[in-house]
Nucleic acid binder design. Structure first.
Ligand SMILES: [Mn+2]
Ligand SMILES: [Mn+2]
Ligand SMILES: [Mn+2]
Ligand SMILES: [Mn+2]
Lengths: 220, 220
DNA sequence: CCCACCATTTTGAGTAGTCAAAATAATTTC
DNA sequence: GAAATTATTTTGACTACTCAAAATGGTGGG
């Protein structure tokens, strides 16, 4: 069985691959895992020796099919656990990422299946992140974001890709939850500011970076 | 925070202390943890240096107050998780010990409290094992067992201290569950055999060793 | 009292993962 | 097209466990 460390490397590699074309740079992994770059080089070489990743020195890494399979398993655990924590234990969506970070390594496939059934086989977690299927299918649709969508048109939030507890608390406070319907009333590229209006409520100002992490689809 | 290894050493030390007078011999810990004796010596010395245990060379180990406090926390997690797995996820009581062995190290105190509330603050787990309170109180009553109770009198099973999946499956098949009411009809010390009769059903034969792991109280 | 046996400890070695700091390669900048 | 900057790799060292096998210490039988 892969160690907790290996599972974390593979899962983060999968997440980074989603937002990176081609190889994931070593530095990105190093940042995501909060370890020093040299450590990543060492670990990636051993993952490569185990056939879980391909390492192109000085260029980056990517998962092999075997590595991706393992990573999807961990990600499925992560997101189902998050869903459980919110729906059954009524925890706040800003707190569950940290919890799931540990639990994803401790849950057996048996427990996972039971959890999945208990929750009614959900397709997404509390943040709108898609949950990989039992057989490793991951619905990864490309969405527009609050940073790119047309102005004034009503849009529905489908997913928040920012994990930090502070941001999620802020978002919830302003009704920016998956399913909410809003309109972008202004986008000031110079100032890097996006203004969002929801049906009944004050307008909310977001940085362009934050807006880019809120995925949407046209409403109605 | 203590590592998974340290948590396991402390928890097993607590369990072994329950069935041992005085110091726990190094060999007992070595067996319980499935590591070689020399490893236990090394680890116990480092636990002693951390103030979690007292080590009397060539005699044994015991928990300090600090070590016991930590061990009770782990045991509480273990038993609440077992209860959750049986009551909410409907798993078999013979499967949950192995699952909880991992999860006990991955659950935060926050999640634990929610779980405890969801389950209605249970006093015992599915095996009848007492669950330590949030503040580290462990009800440890001394019970008779099927190996020691008077013959022919009705007794109620309160706790099964044997954890092996095979035994628990066997026990369940013969209705030997916490709460069940039975009578010991015969006890043959020479053959090491105990015969148990339950209200409607065939008599069951148990080894003396197995019978000693089924704790009871007088019924009615 | 001594020897044999058993539990425990010691010694030496290995694996997994990590960091700090120096070396190297690739990319920008001028 | 150097020189400077930045990313990555290498090197050397450390922590936390673990095992195999040899050494040691108690105990209990003769
Ligand atoms: Mn994790
Ligand atoms: Mn999520
Ligand atoms: Mn454990
Ligand atoms: Mn139990």
């Amino acid at each position: 069985m892969p160690s907790v460390t290996v599972e974390n490397y593979l899962k983060h590699l999968l997440l980074l691959a989603e937002e990176t074309a081609g190889l994931v740079p070593m530095g990105a992994l190093s940042t995501a895992l909060a370890v020093v770059p040299g450590t990543v080089t060492t670990m990636v070489k051993s993952l490569a020796a185990a056939g879980l990743v391909v390492h192109r020195p000085r260029q980056g890494v990517k998962l092999t099919a075997a590595g991706r399979r393992l990573a999807l398993g961990v990600l499925r655990k992560h997101r189902l656990v998050e869903t459980f924590l919110v729906q059954v234990l009524k925890m706040h969506w800003s707190a569950v990422n940290a919890e799931a970070e540990q639990l994803e390594h401790a849950i057996s496939d048996t427990v996972l299946d039971r959890l999945d059934a208990l929750l009614g086989h959900p397709a997404t977690d509390p943040h709108g992140d898609p949950i990989p299927s039992r057989h490793g299918k991951l619905r990864s649709q490309v969405y527009a974001t609050l940073a790119t969508c047309p102005l004034a048109r009503p849009v529905r939030l489908v997913r928040i890709t920012e994990q930090s507890a502070e941001f999620l608390q802020f978002a919830e406070q302003h009704g920016l939850l998956p399913g909410a319907s809003v309109r972008v009333t202004d986008r000031n590229l110079a100032a890097g500011l996006v203004t969002v209006q929801r049906p009944r409520g004050q307008p909310v100002a977001l940085s362009l970076a934050a807006a880019g992490r809120i995925l949407i689809e046209p409403a109605r």
